[in-house]
Design a protein around this nucleic acid. Structure first.
Lengths: 224, 224
DNA sequence: TGGCACGGTTACAATTCCGTGACAAGCGAT
DNA sequence: ATCGCTTGTCACGGAATTGTAACCGTGCCA
């Protein structure tokens, strides 16, 4: 499941949060100061960072800024822990790119909900190695596809075609777009080739065949 | 820029928030109760909804639930306004799919920052050129159109025609202009062809048919 | 009031578009 | 070499789409 990094100098708070996060099934990394937090963020690329603003040495804002400017770490959502009533701090934090904050002393339950909310928001945009839409599951690593739990056997071309459609659920893909991504830019052939492969794909999809919709005069689309 | 809907029964709070939102450059819609808020959300698809929990009649949680279960409105982020200290409410709200909350009485500055944070988070996924005028929603990526929340089925030509009109709301488009952009410069045909397609389009638009206005002697125009 | 220009409406034939089946070339394994 | 599988192309046919023409309704102007 998701990995979460907590950067906090007070050990008892780290333990408290770790305990609850692990009970929810998350993997937890700890760091006691800013530099350690930055380094663990860069090496482990957690799905979320819980970051105390008051840190010895480098403060949380500086960590936040450096995370946002790093190429690999810019996408990691940050949840700030601030002291009560420091509205100025919150303002600075949010404008620095933090995704959310919680005021200390905080309700653990609320913190968990906020972490979940952040992960829920980001997991949609993150590219999943296995795609799953309405009973069609495509595993890019194992290179296999199941429909309603039953494995089906796709050829390489059919697999890439389905993959492209599933990566753009609800979006129309023109024959040219499909030829470019599935067959490659060097392919110089008949656009109707796509049709034939769509037909073969639909055949193998069985009762989920109508998930692949025809948009007449435009192209094909995976039902959203 | 972005459109924001505020659902709040107290008119002075609506005005206060509207004033600051408009100063930031946002377009603002107002609704005084839950049903009105739902309806405006469905027809205008704002980029964000600011929703008071305490509403006469249908409360904010119910509005939130219905927004989340609607196909077109599920993606709209919701920012809840709750009364001080009602942690139970916050928890319920966040688990219902609200993206954030602010406790009343709130700092306007903080509210603005939270709205900006929400918009920043969602604008990445909102890159899609979806046009929206008065209940007619045209999604260029999915290549589909909905009127009052109901999907309608347009042919490719009808779609391009509506797209051109919606890209120029309130502006008259002559038949020649339409022929050039919708049919392409190479088209050499009868200008009255446009009329036939306008008619077919109006038929499918149902009670929104009069959004496509005739400007006698000039061309057609989408009602502003 | 009548004529006229313009757009709405209807009908229809031509065309386009897509699903389907068939087929041959390519390719790897046996 | 032979077989089986994959893949690209093609032709046919049905269905949806589209352009055109003819006819009708309405507003405008003298």
């Amino acid at each position: 499941m998701a990995t979460i990094l907590i950067v906090e100098d007070e050990a008892d708070i780290r333990e408290l949060v770790r305990f609850h996060l692990e009970r929810e099934g998350y993997a937890v990394l700890e760091a006691a100061d800013g530099p350690e937090g930055l380094e663990k963020a860069q090496t482990h690329l957690p799905q979320c960072v819980i970051l105390d603003v008051m840190l010895p040495g480098m403060d949380g804002f500086e960590v936040c800024r450096r995370l946002a400017s790093g190429e690999t770490t810019a996408q990691i959502p940050v949840l700030l822990l601030t002291a009560r009533g420091e509205e100025v701090d919150r303002v600075v934090g949010l404008s620095l790119g933090a995704d959310d904050y919680v005021v200390k002393p905080f309700s653990v339950r609320e913190l968990m909900l906020r972490v979940k909310a952040i992960l829920r928001r980001t997991e949609q945009s993150r590219r999943a190695p296995t795609l799953n839409r309405n009973g069609i599951i495509l595993d890019g690593v194992a290179h296999c596809v199941s429909v309603n739990g039953e494995m089906i056997n796709l050829t390489a071309t059919e697999f890439r075609l389905l993959e492209d459609l599933m990566r753009h659920p609800g979006a129309v893909r023109t024959r040219e777009q499909l030829l470019n991504t599935v067959w490659g830019y060097s392919f110089e052939g008949y656009a109707r080739t796509v049709d034939t492969h769509v037909r073969r794909l639909r055949q193998k999809l069985g009762d989920k065949a109508d998930m692949v919709e025809t948009v007449r005069g435009v192209g094909y689309r995976l039902h959203a």
